[in-house]
Amino acid sequence: MKRLSGFVLFALACIATPFIFPDNYYVTVVGLTIFVNIILAVSLNLLMGYAGQISLGHAAFFGLGAYSSAILTIKYGVNPWAAMAAGALFVLVLSYVLARPILRLKGHYLAMATLGLGIIVHIFFVQADQLTGGPDGISGLPTLSLFGVPIDSDMKWYWVLCSYMLLSVLFSLNIADSRAGRALSAIHGSDIAAETMGINTSKVKSHIFVFSALMASVAGSLFAHQQNFVSPESFSFFFSIELVTMVVLGGLGSTFGAVIGAFLLSILPEVLIVFEDFEVLIFGAILIVIMIFLPEGLFVALRNKATMLLSRRLGES
């Protein structure tokens, strides 16, 4: 099980944390945000890191999941799990329809298309107030129950989100190390060569686009129930950019890179709160500096350095 040793360590750390620091604000409150962000970053990394397809609109699918849950449960009294599934189904159909025309584009054009999609969805959340409650959003979602147990405390949410987060990380690691993952990396490396090796690149790309959108949609539904509230602010263009930043900060193409990136960027506001007005400035500066000096990402750069040192040690002895 050498392949998953990193995952096992990570899972143990997540499980142990609330026991080591019980009732800690950073665990039960910030921790939940971190988990949601990790799920989103990991799902975005499947598309951006593995397949090399930039997306500046990932928050749209997260938002569509959240709003589906909010609207269906509150306005139509649908069972929360059914609402979540309906939201996922809607996102599945939408992302499947959009995948091919969008992913035919490359580079800046792809960036523009995904960005446009994100902005349109966000404007819809703000403007369709009959349905979405407008800028104020919708509050008062029903409590989610799992096997008859209501998930009604921060600690219970910790376990639910932690489980889904670990599952996402596991899926992502499994995909990396499989035929499907190699097909994605091949497209990233050279889509012409990938195609001549028999990979139906447009199909593979649209499958990962849909998969990643689905992960985000379910995360959105859970987020809506956990927050008990949805509003357009959480799903804006800026959040999409933040997600991209998480993935790039940790290191494109590395699952744990996405995890580390999401972790760092989720606690950053908590740290920067001391600097108040400087927050935006510092955030921008970090982005530029990392991209110039460590374009491969923080986690990946450190990991490569460590392997290099290790192999040199082994070589000497």
Partner: peptide
């Protein structure tokens, strides 16, 4: 047009794409 983002053997494993068939979902669940 080598896949420079992969190791040598992974490059060749991509060559085996047509001789294998696992899909995305099966791979995710392993």
């Amino acid at each position: 047009q080598v896949f420079l983002n992969m190791s040598a053997i992974e490059n060749v494993m991509v060559g085996c794409h047509l001789r294998s068939k696992s899909g995305l979902m099966a791979s995710a669940i392993r």
